[in-house]
C-alpha cells in the first residue's frame, strides 16, 4: 500500500468544523484589524492630547484598556465554549479548539495588560506594582489560565484532553468571581495608603475616549483574526496526528513477521 492514509483524511472523512470562517472573511477581518490598529497608532500617539497630570504615559492606556477588555472577552469565550463542550447535545471538538485558542490569546493579552499597567504605574503611581484589587485579581486570573494552558499541553487523546480541560476551564471561571470578591474585600477592609486614585480615570478628553474605542475595536478584530488562525492551526495539527495514526494502524495490520506467534501464516 503506497502512502497509507494520506488520501484518507481529505476525502474519506468530511469532518465538520474544519474552519471557523471562510478564508475570505478572515482576510477581511485581518485587513480591518490592520487598518484600525494603524488608526489607533495615529489617534493615540498624535491626535489625542497628552494627559494633564500623567503626560504621555497616559497613552499606554490606549493599549492597556483594550488588552484588559480582550483578556476578559477571551476567558469568557473559553468558559462558554468549555460549557458547550461538556453539554452532551452540543459536544464537539469545535468548542474544545475554540476554548484552547481563546485561552491562549487571553493569557497573552492578560500578560500584555499587566506589563503595560506596570510600565504605566511606575511614572504615574511611582511603583511598578500596587496591591490594588483589580491588579491582584488580574494576576490570579493570569495564573489560573496559565495552569489551564499547561494542562492543554499534556499529551492525551483529543477527547480526554477536551473533557479534562473543559472541566478545568469551568472551575477556573467559577473561581474568578470568588477571587475578585475576596481580594476586593481584603483591600477595602485594610485601608492602606493606596496610590491608586479612581478619579484619574474619570476625566477623559473627547479624543482620548475616541482613541480608547478605536483600541477596543482594533483589538477585538485582531482577536477574531488570531482566534481563527489558531483554530486552523489546531485543525491542521489534529489532521497530521490523524494521518500518522492511520499510517500506524496500517503498519500494525500489515505488521512485520510477528514475533513468537502461534500458528499464524504470513
Amino acid at each position: 500500500m503506497s502512502a497509507p492514509g494520506t488520501d484518507m483524511v481529505s476525502d474519506a472523512d468530511p469532518r465538520s468544523g474544519e474552519r471557523l470562517m471562510a478564508p475570505v472573511a478572515r482576510r477581511i477581518v485581518g485587513v480591518l484589524a490592520l487598518v484600525t490598529l494603524a488608526a489607533l497608532v495615529i489617534v493615540g500617539l498624535w491626535v489625542a492630547p497628552p494627559d494633564e497630570f500623567q503626560g504621555d504615559a497616559q497613552r499606554l492606556m490606549y493599549i492597556h484598556v483594550p488588552a484588559a477588555w480582550l483578556a476578559y472577552l477571551a476567558f469568557g469565550v473559553t468558559a462558554v465554549s468549555s460549557a458547550l463542550y461538556l453539554w452532551p447535545r452540543t459536544r464537539s471538538l469545535v468548542w474544545d479548539r475554540v476554548a484552547g485558542a481563546s485561552a491562549e490569546l487571553g493569557v497573552v493579552f492578560t500578560a500584555l495588560c499587566l506589563l503595560l499597567g506596570s510600565l504605566w504605574g511606575r511614572p504615574v503611581w511611582g511603583v511598578w506594582w500596587a496591591w490594588d484589587a483589580r491588579l491582584v485579581t488580574t494576576a490570579v486570573l493570569f495564573f489560573l489560565y496559565l495552569g489551564y494552558l499547561a494542562l492543554r499541553r499534556v499529551p492525551a487523546t483529543l477527547d480526554v484532553r477536551a473533557k479534562r480541560c473543559a472541566i478545568a476551564a469551568l472551575i477556573a471561571f467559577i473561581d474568578v468571581p470568588i477571587v475578585h470578591f475576596s481580594v476586593t474585600w481584603w483591600r477595602t477592609l485594610h485601608q492602606e495608603a493606596t496610590v491608586f486614585n479612581p478619579e484619574l480615570d474619570a476625566e477623559i478628553h473627547g479624543t482620548m475616549a475616541l482613541a480608547l474605542w478605536i483600541g477596543v475595536l482594533a483589538f477585538t478584530l485582531l482577536y477574531v483574526y488570531l482566534l481563527d488562525l489558531r483554530y486552523r492551526l489546531e485543525v491542521l495539527d489534529e489532521d497530521r496526528d490523524e494521518r500518522e495514526l492511520e499510517a500506524a494502524i496500517a503498519d500494525r495490520v500489515q505488521g512485520g513477521p510477528p514475533r513468537e506467534t502461534v500458528g499464524a501464516s504470513s
Partner: peptide, 9 residues
C-alpha cells in the same frame, strides 16, 4: 482466538 498485531483470527 489468536491475536496478531492487533488483529484477531
Amino acid at each position: 482466538v489468536v491475536l496478531t498485531n492487533g488483529q484477531a483470527d
